[in-house]
């Protein structure tokens, strides 16, 4: 067998099952004899096997950004495929069967759910209601800034929720080092007391996203002191998201930081949820 004959039968040789043999044994013997004695063909066979086995390792190698689930969940909710476990007649305004586009608190449900979903599996879906009610007043989120969550409603590809892309760098200077250090540390439990650095982060908050404006307009109906609490909490969690996002952009392989980012989204979801319960 010549080199080019080897190459011609090579695909058959490479892709046969381990216990399969060539259609005819003579062929196989000739093939193997040639490959044993020809360095070039031996290399070729080894390289092609190597390429196939390296390819097999790629099958689950990539992790999608959290926003992918955020968008899926928002869409499923908007289409009524995800349904609330128990219909709650007490809060008809929040059941997302009302006309979707009309502004009301309706948007809060999908957005909060989607944000919550972005937090991966940290909090399972049933305990949320309890957590929320316990936390209404003392919720404290860590300092820091916003990755705007755009259009968490249908539209799929046309309306990306850009966690990563829209981020403006966090106001740097003194914050930068702190944020890098923070993302490597264990995240504080949301029920812990307020972080004194919150105020510092607030001074430099960017203009709010559409969803945030809607959120703010919902809470504006509440008593001034309560409203102020929501506003500062929203700023704080947005700051956290933005600063962490900036860090993740610079260090995309830092799993802790990504986890932290998801936690921050989860906190934001809780905040929406709390507001939702509050305005009933």
């Amino acid at each position: 067998m010549t080199c080019s004959e080897v190459e011609r039968v090579l695909p058959e040789f490479l892709d046969r099952a381990p216990d399969d043999s060539f259609p005819d044994a003579v062929h196989q013997a000739e093939f193997e004899t040639h490959v044993k004695s020809c360095l070039a063909c031996a290399d070729l066979v080894a390289d092609l096997k190597l390429i196939s086995s390296a390819a097999r390792q790629m099958v689950e190698s990539e992790e999608p950004a959290p926003r992918v689930w955020v968008r899926i969940a928002a869409e499923l909710r908007a289409e009524g495929i995800i349904r609330d476990p128990v219909p709650t007649p007490a809060r008809p305004a929040l059941v997302p069967t009302a006309p979707r586009r009309r502004w009301s608190a309706v948007w809060l449900a999908p957005v909060a759910a989607a944000l919550l979903a972005a937090g991966a599996y940290v909090v399972s879906h049933k305990p949320v209601a309890q957590v929320v009610t316990q936390q209404v007043s003392p919720v404290q989120v860590s300092p820091v800034q916003v990755a705007p969550l755009q259009e968490a409603t249908p539209g799929g590809a046309a309306s990306p929720v850009t966690g990563a892309n829209v981020v403006t760098p966090a106001p740097e200077t003194a914050h930068a080092q702190r944020s890098e250090a923070r993302t490597n540390s264990v995240r504080p439990n949301p029920t812990k007391p307020a972080n004194p650095e919150v105020a510092a982060a607030h001074a430099v908050a960017p203009s709010p996203s559409v969803e945030d404006q809607q959120f703010l307009s919902v809470v504006s109906t509440l008593a001034p002191s309560v409203r102020a609490t929501y506003e500062s909490q929203l700023q704080a969690v947005n700051a956290d998201i933005r600063e962490t996002q900036a860090y993740v952009n610079r260090n995309p392989r830092d799993a802790d930081a990504r986890q932290h980012l998801m936690d921050a989204y989860q906190e934001k979801a809780l905040l929406y949820q709390i507001a939702m319960d509050r305005i009933q």
């Binding site: 689950e60 990539e62 689930w69 349904r83 599996y121 879906h125």
Partner: peptide
């Protein structure tokens, strides 16, 4: 039954495989 947590579990179980496949085929993360 429309349970969100169930959908999310299914997503979490398969997201890497699905996303990796898409990325390999189109070579563009977005």
């Amino acid at each position: 039954q429309g349970d969100e947590a169930a959908f999310e579990l299914l997503y979490q179980l398969h997201k890497r495989r699905v996303y990796s496949l898409c990325l390999r085929m189109v070579s563009n993360p977005a």
